[in-house]
């Protein structure tokens, strides 16, 4: 028991140090850290569904709702984001359930689930573009700025925003832990394995699926809202649609979607990679980062579907545990 706690401390202390470090670093690093924290939340939210084979290609829909609803409310009615964000989360959850309920009832899984969610992401993108009178269409929009204001959640001071993002990120991890420790994980794992068998064993398939869908979509909307508040600029392609939806999926997979910190590592990895390549190649090679990124993703999925964390676990486990005799591979 004590040994377990010690190793956990060994893991969490550096993590806490890394999370706290940006407070003492320059604006540039704080900017990186804010992005990593926000996207970590979004990727964690996606992985909450993805790890149970609910592979959504439409999380951009929730991101878009989260980003646009608070900004529209603020710009048009002066509603504070402190109200707008919960409202946007509720709307995203409602949207997720409207699609999630019948698709769970009809047992829409696998490819079909992926493609239905992809269509959902596209619907939100097109709605944002179509409502160009209020959203600015493809050109994007900016929230009305009021300078530094907690009421408007406009914090030009990066350290302050980082604190906010950090809290949101921790909320994502808490949700993960709740799922990890609860009956819901066992229920959803059995559903992922064999839905009919799970049902006949007394698992309320519909309820469990909708629960995780609600948590995942709500947290994604929170991430979208924070991202918009941080950037102070919203555009449909950056906040919604197929491109961003796939980016969410891949970063989560690259980090490792079966581990609490996997999506966070995926966020750090992808953002630092993009930034590193930008510094290396300059802006002349727009697309260089994403080209390498795309190739890496293919390699990840072929050779290490459990992501960076999965690889690390395998390497760390090797010296202690001899190769297990034909242990059944967990669902991937």
């Amino acid at each position: 028991m004590r040994g377990g706690r010690d190793t956990r401390l060994l893991l969490y202390l550096p993590l806490a140090a890394a999370a706290a470090a940006p407070f003492f670093l320059s604006d540039y690093f704080q900017h990186m850290a804010v992005q990593i924290a926000i996207w970590s939340l979004v990727y964690t939210a996606w992985a909450l569904m993805g790890r149970f084979r609910l592979t959504s290609l439409g999380h951009g829909a929730f991101l878009g709702v989260g980003a646009y609803v608070p900004t529209l409310l603020w710009n048009n009615y002066g509603v504070t984001p402190w109200l707008g964000i919960p409202l946007a989360m509720a709307l995203a959850i409602a949207l997720a359930l409207i699609v999630g309920y019948p698709s769970s009832r009809q047992k829409v899984v696998g490819h079909y689930f992926a493609l239905v969610t992809l269509a959902l992401g596209q619907v939100v993108l097109l709605v944002i573009v179509a409502m160009r009178d209020v959203t600015g269409g493809s050109l994007g929009m900016t929230p009305h700025t009021v300078g530094h204001s907690w009421y408007a959640l406009q914090l030009p001071n990066k350290a302050e925003f980082y604190a906010v993002a950090l809290v949101a990120w921790l909320a994502g991890l808490v949700a993960w832990r709740y799922v990890e420790r609860g009956m819901i994980r066992l229920a959803l794992e059995s559903i992922a394995e064999d839905e009919d068998a799970a049902e006949s064993a007394g698992v309320d398939v519909l309820r469990e699926k909708l629960k995780i869908t609600a948590v995942s979509s709500g947290l994604t909307a929170l991430g979208g809202a924070l991202y918009a508040q941080y950037l102070m600029y919203l555009s449909p392609d950056a906040m919604s649609g197929v491109g961003i939806s796939l980016q969410i999926v891949f970063a989560a997979i690259a980090g490792g979607m079966y581990n609490m910190l996997g999506p966070t590592i995926g966020a750090a990895f992808t953002i630092l990679l993009t930034e590193g390549l930008r510094v290396l190649f300059g802006t002349h090679f727009v697309g260089a980062a994403n080209t390498i990124y795309g190739a890496l993703l293919v390699i990840f999925i072929i050779f290490m579907p459990r992501g960076i964390v999965g690889l690390a676990e395998r390497i760390l486990a090797r010296p202690r545990v001899p190769p297990a005799p034909a242990a059944p591979e967990p669902a991937e």
Binding site: T55, L246, F250, N290
Partner: peptide, 12 residues
Amino acid sequence: LATGGVLFFLQS
């Protein structure tokens, strides 16, 4: 998902 990686690759 792997072909999704190809999507990113070709696009970029």
